[in-house]
Design a protein around this nucleic acid. Structure first.
Length: 351
DNA sequence: AATCCGATCAACCGCGGTCGC
DNA sequence: GGCGACCGCGGTTGATCGGAT
């Protein structure tokens, strides 16, 4: 014997709510509170199902709902949380007081998502759309990997975005056989043993590098928060979690807790990101056709070779979207890490 | 003025997990 | 323990609006 039916479908009104209906719902909830959505419509004198009433209340009539345009800080928070949580709109909404999951979802789909797409950023993975293997196959055996990787290592340590890149690079079967690359990964492993232990358990636990699971730029960038993940709040200032990687039990990494914002990529970097040279363009050469710039290879948003505090790099300096300018044109949101100058200027020669 | 088209967002739909009977 | 309603969530739809033609 289950519960009694929620409501009769027949005879119940659908579609837009009238102001009279709104007032009935508000009056009833103010007087009796909410809790039993099943019986509420009848008690309130509404020809609606409980589900419709709950939706109307939680998404529109609730007194603590903040209406109007999203602020820059809210938008940045959405992007940051989405990069970790994915389409967990309710979880994201819980970090944005006064905003509903429905409102955030709509805003994402109508504004942020399109903007990221215009910038060539995959709104699902938050990475530049890029086929790394095709770049590495660009005569990759001749790249001076030792120099390249030595320069990358300080960047990669403790930076999830670049760890993703590193794991993407590592997924290239040709690179797995490269001793320089293996050495690079092992060095990172010492600094990021937890992450790599879960990404490549064989790699960290074994004395020698063994076959690592194939990952590509898509699969290695999704790190769902575990249920146990906790956000830290302090003095009303939200602190977003840094990412500590733990296994979720099925071989995939799962992020957990902690504090600091260091691991996040700022909106400014997204915008600089959008101004980058097309990564599929032929490599830029300074002195010969066998050089390529480091900046043109990195796929991570946090790896922009452009000065990150430079407003002049804002979407090629020619954004046609006024609200983008309004929101970001004068903002200088720094990355949680710095790219050494010598690395930005470094050219990697083929051997 | 009429029509078209894209953007927006409130509301609905369907699914999965939870919980009461 | 099983059934089935409830609840919350994410995806999708469709009405509406404003700008362009």
């Amino acid at each position: 014997m289950g519960r009694a039916p929620c409501c009769e479908k027949n005879g119940l009104k659908k579609g837009p709510w009238t102001s009279e209906e709104d007032q009935k719902l508000i009056d009833y909830i103010q007087k009796h509170g909410y809790g039993n959505w099943r019986t509420l419509p009848k008690s309130a004198g509404l020809q609606r199902c409980g589900k419709s009433c709950r939706l109307r209340w939680t998404n529109y009539l609730r007194p603590d709902i903040k209406r109007g345009r999203f602020s820059f800080e809210e938008e940045e928070t959405i992007i940051q949380l989405h990069s970790i949580l994915g389409n967990k709109w309710s979880s994201i909404a819980s970090r944005l007081p006064g905003r509903t999951d429905n409102e955030i979802k709509n805003y994402w789909n109508t504004h942020i998502r399109k903007r990221l797409l215009r910038m060539g950023i995959d709104p699902v993975t938050h990475t530049r759309k890029l086929d790394l293997s095709s770049i590495l196959s660009y005569n990759s055996s001749q790249i001076n990997l030792q120099s390249l990787l030595a320069g990358m290592q300080p960047l990669v340590n403790y930076n999830p975005e670049l760890l993703r890149l590193a794991t993407s690079l590592f997924s290239s079967s040709s690179q797995r056989q490269n001793p320089n690359f293996n050495s690079f990964i092992q060095n990172i492993a010492q600094e990021n043993s937890l992450f790599l232990h879960n990404q490549f358990p064989q790699l960290v636990l074994a004395d020698q590098i063994q076959e690592a699971p194939m990952m590509d730029a898509t699969t290695c960038v999704s790190y769902p928060l575990s249920d146990q993940a906790q956000f830290v709040e302090s003095n009303n200032v939200e602190q977003y979690p840094s990412i500590c990687w733990e296994s979720n039990g099925n071989g995939n990494p799962a992020a957990t807790s902690s504090s600091t914002q260091d691991c996040y990529v700022s909106l400014q970097s997204y915008y600089n990101y959008g101004s980058e040279q097309n990564l599929m363009d032929p490599p830029i050469s300074n002195n010969s056709n066998q050089d390529f710039s480091f900046g043109s290879v990195l796929s991570s948003p946090s790896s922009s070779p452009t000065p990150l505090n430079s407003i002049s790099t804002y979407i090629n300096g020619s954004s046609s979207i006024e609200d983008e300018k309004d929101s970001y044109g004068s903002s200088n949101h720094l990355l949680g890490f710095e790219i050494p100058d010598d690395l930005l200027d470094f050219n990697y020669d083929f051997v």
